[in-house]
């Protein structure tokens, strides 16, 4: 089943090309959209919401064409923008109820859904207070709640972890994962950190400069790029030579060595090698892939 699909989608502004012949398909579940600032993530979301006309190409959301059926799409999708969008003198309840009504819910249903959804995103007594006094974490939760209040089939979350502290970030990511699994709502979530999306997504799309860099299931993604960082006190080169002799692929990166993990046995090999050479091991860390790593690799999608 395809949730959304684009076909040669381009969008040119007078001075920049935001999207350049982008062709992707997205299935149900949680999909990450990764790219640096200005990569075209927000432009893509605006086109998918039917708010921006593509210059060229076509896109479908839930089987509906974005140019012809924008209004129908907007009935069944939710959108959480990247920027602040909360009036400070309203309470979270008033705000969410109002936006539920704007999505076409009758008055009583809007109240019930707003209360339900605010509870699900983790806002309790504070939802009756004016939003001006909320922390960033609470504001992000309200923004998420208004995107979910009309029970959409698909939500677009634009940088939901922006400005959150590590704990808030973890909670937000866990919540997004729950939306995709427990709530049964498909999610397209953008971020410029691949690392955080790795943990919650089924599928990741990487774009840069409006073009597709790669699009693959998260399992393939981590398999092909898994490395382990090894740092020893002295004798980095000795260890590198030893490991290379054992058939491992090793690259030196500053004070550390990057060892490609072919199979779980690689960890044992590294451990044994350090022991055999009698070196002091400082750390051995699962290579966390970052967006930059993807950019460094050739775009062999």
């Amino acid at each position: 089943m395809t949730i959304l699909a684009t076909e040669g989608l381009s969008r040119r502004f007078p001075r920049v090309t935001a999207l350049d012949r982008l062709t992707v398909t997205v299935g149900p579940g949680v999909t990450g959209l990764v790219g640096a600032n200005g990569a075209g993530k927000s432009t893509l979301i605006k086109i998918l919401l039917g708010l921006l006309e593509p210059s060229e190409g076509a896109a479908q959301v839930l089987g509906m064409d974005v140019t012809a059926q924008g209004a129908e799409i907007r009935r069944v999708v939710g959108y959480m923008p990247e920027h602040d969008c909360l009036p400070p003198d309203l309470s979270a309840t008033e705000f969410t109820v109002h936006l539920a009504r704007m999505s076409g819910l009758p008055r009583t249903a809007a109240r019930e859904r707003a209360a339900d959804v605010l509870r699900h995103v983790g806002l309790y007594e504070e939802r009756y207070r004016a939003m001006g006094g909320y922390s960033t974490g609470m504001k992000q939760r309200v923004k998420l709640a208004q995107a979910l209040v009309h029970d959409p089939k698909l939500v677009f979350l634009d940088e939901p972890t922006n400005g959150l502290d590590p704990q808030g970030r973890d909670e937000m990511l866990a919540l997004i994962r729950r939306i995709g699994t427990e709530f049964g709502i498909s999610v397209l979530v953008t971020s410029h950190l691949l690392g955080e999306l790795e943990r919650i997504c089924d599928h990741v799309i990487v774009i840069d400069g409006g073009t597709l860099l790669r699009s693959s299931a998260i399992s393939e993604f981590t398999q092909t790029t898994r490395t382990v960082t090894v740092e020893v006190e002295e004798g980095r080169d000795v260890l590198a030579a030893h490991l290379a002799g054992l058939g491992e692929t090793v690259t030196a990166a500053g004070r550390t060595l990057l060892v490609e993990v072919r199979a779980p046995e690689t960890y044992d090999t590294v451990r044994d090698a350090v022991c055999d050479l009698d070196l002091s091991l400082i750390r051995m860390e699962q290579g966390r892939q970052r967006i930059e790593d993807v950019f460094r690799e050739p775009a062999d999608v």
Partner: peptide, 18 residues
């Protein structure tokens, strides 16, 4: 003014109302 100042407008536009 508040909808412009606090950028609530995109939330309306992402809904069926034009």
């Amino acid at each position: 003014a508040p909808d412009l100042r606090f950028r609530v407008l995109p939330l309306y536009l992402s809904r069926p109302v034009t």
